[in-house]
Write a protein that binds this DNA or RNA. Sequence first.
DNA 1: ATGGTAGCGCTGCTA
Length: 262
Amino acid sequence: MRLVTWNINSLNARQARVEALLGELQPDICCLQETKIADRSFPAMAFEALGYESAHHGNGRWNGVAILSRVGLSEARAGFVDDEADSIEECRLLQANCGGTRVMCVYVPNGRSVDSEHYAAKLTWLARLRDELGRTCDPTTPLVVCGDFNIAPGDDDVFDPAAFVGATHVTPQERAALGDLLAWGLVDAQRHVVPCGPGPFTWWDYRAGAFHKGEGMRIDLALCTRPVAEHLIEVRVEREARKKGTFDVAPSDHAPLVLDWQ
DNA sequence: ATGGTAGCGCTGCTA
């Protein structure tokens, strides 16, 4: 089984890049974040033509998450199970059963700055995700929780820890919230295969040539239950997709994360 | 060749 997770920073802008990646990597499951498109405008037919069923949850302006699958897609659900519409409106969580694996596609709030209400909301959102796991999932069954977590798990997941002092993505509170997810019964797939950093990075700021200078972060993660982790063959970052290549449109600021398991 | 925000949507916000 091959799963790709990729924050594409607008599906409208990068449809051609997504289709090219599907053609090149032939993933069985593909999770997309920041589609920035409304459900009514989601190009389900284009993906169907490539052999993928799909589910999408987006409001057309910000955020937006999608799951594509060529190994079946059922029991799709948007938002948290205990939701009263608030997280539904944010369009940050979508899950579905794909080929015997429960797949959760997440776009964790950025948090902006540590003194911001958005940072507190980020921690609350992560706690709700932990509750969602406890209420609806079983750590002994195949599950992958993947997407843009906006958290660098360790200091070896940023190009220079000194550059992030006082910033979001690296605070003990965010890392503890991630640790609570792992403690429930999930494994960081990348670290399971490659125990130490640096990186590999999955995101580079558009500004100041960060990609060119290697100044990135590992914030796109795939967290797996043991039944998946035990069968992992390879986990890697498709760095080529972060380059301009022959496309007319710029690349996303994120690169895809690729998981292979038996 | 020698780079070096981008998308949304319309002015500034978000990342």
